[in-house]
Computed example of a mutant assay.
Amino acid sequence: MDLTKEIKELENIRRSDSNKVFTMYLNTDPSDPEQQGGEWKIHYKNGMRNFESYLKEDEDKEELKNFQLVKQKVDKFIKGNEQKFLRGVVIIATADEEVWFADRVQMRLKTEFFWQETPELGQIKKLEESYPKTGIVLVQQNEVKVIESYLNEIEEIYSYELNVDTDDWRQKVGPRKANASSMAPGATNAQKDNFAARYEANKQRWYKKIAPKLDKAAKDKEWEKIVIVGESDPSQELKQQMNKQVDEVIQKNMLDHEESKVLAEVFG
C-alpha cells in the first residue's frame, strides 16, 4: 500500500449532501492496558450506535439510510478481520462506495468517529509521518542484515555475509549459520585474535564493498529513512562508506534479535 498516494486521493474528497464521509480510528492494541478485555468492541458498538441515534433524531431519512449502508460494510470488515487485528484499524467510507479505505495498522490510535463532508485524516497522516519506508541495516563485523519496513510493518528481510578469504559479500540463502571467522562460540582465542587483526586492517575496504549494494537497495526500494544498528565501530564505518544519507545510528548489537524488537528499538 502506498499511503502517500491514498492520502492525496482522500484529500480531494468533499461531500455536501446526505451522502457524507465516514471516518473511524479504532484502538485495538492488545498491549494497551485499557484494551485487555477487548474493550475496543464496546467502543466500536457505542460509537456506531451514537451516530445512528443522532441521525434518527435528526429525521433525515436519506442521511440515515446512507449511514446504515456504511455501517453494514464496516461491520462486515470488522467481523471478517478481528482475528487479525494489529494495534489499530482505520476505515474511511461512503455509502456509494466511491470511497472505501480499510486497513489494519501497526500503530496505537485514539478511538474516534466522524460523519462529515470530508475525511478526517489527522491520525492517518501521523501514521505516514511516523513510519516511512525505512531501511534498517544491522551490521556486525562480517555480516549485514537488512530489514525493510513501512508503516511499522516488515516488508522484506535479507542478509549479506562476507567471505573473508575472497573479500566478497554474498547475499545469504537459508538459515543463519555460525562462522568461526566471525568469532563463533567455538572459535579459539587464536582465531578470534586473528580475525580481529584482519578486521582492523581491512574494515574500510570491506564496508566499501557492501555499501553500493545498500545504496542501490535504498534507491530501488525508495527508502525514505535509513537507520544503521550495530556496535560503534562497524556502524560508523559503514555509515562513512555509504553515499546515501544515514538518518540515525543506533549503537547496539541487535543482529540476532527478533525483527519486531528491532522495529520497537528503531521507532520507539
Rank of each mutant, 00 (worst) to 15 (best):
E200I: 07
R205P: 07
W206C: 03
Q204N: 11
A196I: 04
I154K: 08
D193F: 01
K208G: 15
N179R: 15
A197M: 07
R176Q: 05
Y207I: 01
Y160D: 00
Y160T: 02
D167I: 08
A196L: 14
A178T: 12
T166Q: 05
N202L: 09
R198Q: 14
N163L: 07
K177L: 12
Q171A: 02
V173C: 00
D165R: 14
A197S: 13
Y199V: 05
Y199K: 12
D165M: 13
E156A: 11
W169R: 09
R198D: 12
T188E: 07
A184T: 04
A178M: 10
N152V: 06
V164Q: 11
K177G: 03
N179K: 11
G174N: 03
A197N: 15
N189R: 08
Y207G: 01
L151A: 10
K209D: 11
A197C: 04
A178W: 12
Q204D: 12
N152Y: 00
E156V: 03
I154F: 10
Y207T: 02
T188W: 01
R198K: 13
R205H: 15
M183H: 10
A184G: 11
T166H: 05
E153W: 06
Q191S: 06
K192T: 01
E200T: 06
I157Q: 09
P175L: 09
K172C: 08
S181A: 14
D168N: 11
P185A: 00
W206K: 02
N163K: 05
Q171Y: 06
N202S: 14
S182M: 11
Q191R: 03
M183N: 15
Y158A: 00
G174K: 04
K209L: 05
N163Y: 03
S181W: 12
E155A: 05
I154L: 05
E200H: 13
N189G: 15
Q204Y: 14
S181C: 10
R205Q: 15
E155I: 13
Q191V: 02
P175E: 13
A201P: 15
M183E: 12
E200A: 08
E155F: 03
N163R: 04
P185F: 09
E155G: 07
Y207R: 02
G174I: 02
E161R: 05
T166A: 04
S181L: 11
P175G: 06
P175V: 09
L151T: 01
N194P: 00
K172Y: 01
A196Q: 11
P185Q: 00
K177T: 08
